[in-house]
């Protein structure tokens, strides 16, 4: 079955830094949707509210206005914990739950009273390059990169319809990042999960996504096919983001060699 995660005209403001009690608009008029089996990468400069957008989609924060729907059902009509099982958020800073590596892997099943699928968990661990880790090790002693991968696998074991990935390869070496990309693409074709993935790595974005959302000027400024975005961004901000400068008239080339 194809699932659709849809957001309509989301707006979010934050308290202004100055003590005048005003609010600073973060974004508004953010609309879009992700379907099963689709990977959308969210690009944009820091401070555009990309992480906040993912947190709103996982109901960890509330939008000021607008709506979020899963298969036509509003998040307001659904119990938050059921929503979050289907729309799983993997945060940028991985948090290990108290206990061992295995306790972390078993947490999703323990929370939902399901049997722990040990084989699958360890197969994923292996695929992520963590096969040599002692499952009895205290998870808090893992390195940053190990934590990041473990936290991703922990969320995969929920078997969600959608994955909200916040810079999940940021603290990984290029080789490990590649194996994560491979793991996720395998997961997507096997389970048909849809992905909304924040990345600052343009090459990665070009590799993994079928669509790009560019967040700029307080909204999703561009919603374009990946190939088209990298060859012919539709806005000056898009050109600027790709480092091509607003005046440059680049012919249709992949943006993969840009950095």
């Amino acid at each position: 079955m194809t699932h659709i995660l849809k957001m309509d005209r989301l707006a979010k403001s934050l308290p202004a830094k100055k003590a005048d009690g005003g609010r600073r608009m973060l974004f508004q008029e953010v609309s879009g949707s992700v379907s099963s089996g689709e990977t959308v990468v969210v690009l944009g400069r820091s401070g555009q509210g990309k992480s906040t957008l993912l947190r709103i989609l996982s109901l960890l924060e509330q939008a000021d206005s607008g709506s979020v729907e899963l298969d036509g059902k509003s998040c307001a009509d659904m119990e938050a914990r059921l929503w979050r099982r289907q729309v799983a958020y993997v945060s940028q800073t991985p948090v290990m739950l108290p206990g061992s590596v295995e306790a972390n892997l078993a947490a999703p099943s323990a929370l939902h009273g399901l049997p722990f699928q040990r084989e699958q968990a360890y197969a994923l661990l292996d695929e992520a390059g963590l096969g040599s880790i002692d499952p009895g090790k205290d998870a808090s002693e893992l390195s940053g990169g190990e934590k990041q991968r473990l936290s991703l696998i922990r969320s995969l074991l929920l078997k969600p319809h959608f994955l909200l990935l916040d810079e999940i390869t940021a603290s990984l070496d290029p080789g490990s990042a590649m194996s994560i990309e491979k793991l996720l693409s395998g997961w997507r074709s096997e389970h048909g999960a849809g992905m909304l993935w924040i990345s600052h790595d343009q090459e990665q974005a070009a590799r993994v996504s079928s669509r790009i959302w560019l967040m700029a000027r307080n909204t999703i400024l561009e919603n374009a096919d990946t190939g088209r975005f990298f060859s012919r961004p539709g806005t000056p901000e898009g050109l600027e983001y790709l480092g091509k400068g607003p005046s440059l008239d680049e012919p249709g080339e992949s943006g993969a060699e840009e950095s």
Binding site: S58, L60, R81, S91, T93, L111
Partner: peptide, 11 residues
């Protein structure tokens, strides 16, 4: 962090 992680796992 711990509480939100658990929430995100559907707790």
């Amino acid at each position: 962090g711990e509480i939100e992680t658990l929430l995100a796992l559907g707790a």
